[in-house]
């Protein structure tokens, strides 16, 4: 077969999903947007769960007592992304996915740390950085990111 020049095409697939949040995560997100507060729920056998599921994972009982937790916490796991992928990851410069156990909570919240990722360790103290008032839309990114607490 004779050589022929290659043929290229840029193709973009987009899936514009709209997730229904439900009454529990829906109110958790409303708390971020409207109150700049992070809410969890006290659940039998699990303590304060953030973000709340609405039920106990141990016995299925309802977790309907809301508890405010602090915007500060302790990192329990770190995964640094050295080469972010545009459109997929939240930043274009190296950042870290982290699990943060917020003060007052007994479970860890998944989020991101934007700066100083080389200093991140399990046990590092971090605090929430809020998105500006006019940019909070009721999503987990109403917390723009976490940053290392200056010591």
């Amino acid at each position: 077969m004779a050589e022929i020049p290659p043929l290229h095409q840029e193709v973009v697939l987009e899936f514009p999903y709209k997730h229904s949040t439900g009454p529990v995560i829906g109110r958790f997100l409303a708390g971020l947007k409207e109150q700049k507060k992070i809410w969890g729920q006290r659940v039998r056998g699990q303590g304060v769960v953030v973000p709340p599921l609405g039920y106990s994972e141990l016995d299925g009982s309802a977790g309907d007592e809301w508890v405010e937790v602090q915007p500060t916490g302790t990192v329990t796991a770190v995964a640094v992304v050295h080469e972010p992928i545009e459109g997929l990851h939240p930043f274009t410069t190296p950042f870290a996915f982290v699990l943060v156990r917020l003060d007052g909570a007994d479970t860890a919240l998944a989020h991101v740390v934007k700066d100083d990722v080389a200093r991140l360790r399990v046990g590092t103290r971090v605090e929430a950085v809020w998105a500006p008032d006019d940019q909070r839309q009721g999503t987990i990114r109403d917390i723009a990111c976490f940053r290392i607490v200056a010591t």
Binding site: P6, L7, H8, Q9, E10, V11, V12, L13, E14, F15, P16, Y17, K18, H19, S20, T21, G22, P23, I25, G26, R27, F28, L29, A30, G31, K33, E34, Q35, K37, W39, W66, G87, L88, G138, T139
Partner: peptide, 21 residues
């Protein structure tokens, strides 16, 4: 937290391909 929940979150999945025939 506020009584009125946020009902939906948008989650756009975007997959840019470079197709070579």
């Amino acid at each position: 937290p506020p009584r009125e929940p946020i009902k939906y979150v948008d989650a756009l999945v975007r997959l840019p391909y470079h197709y070579v025939a």
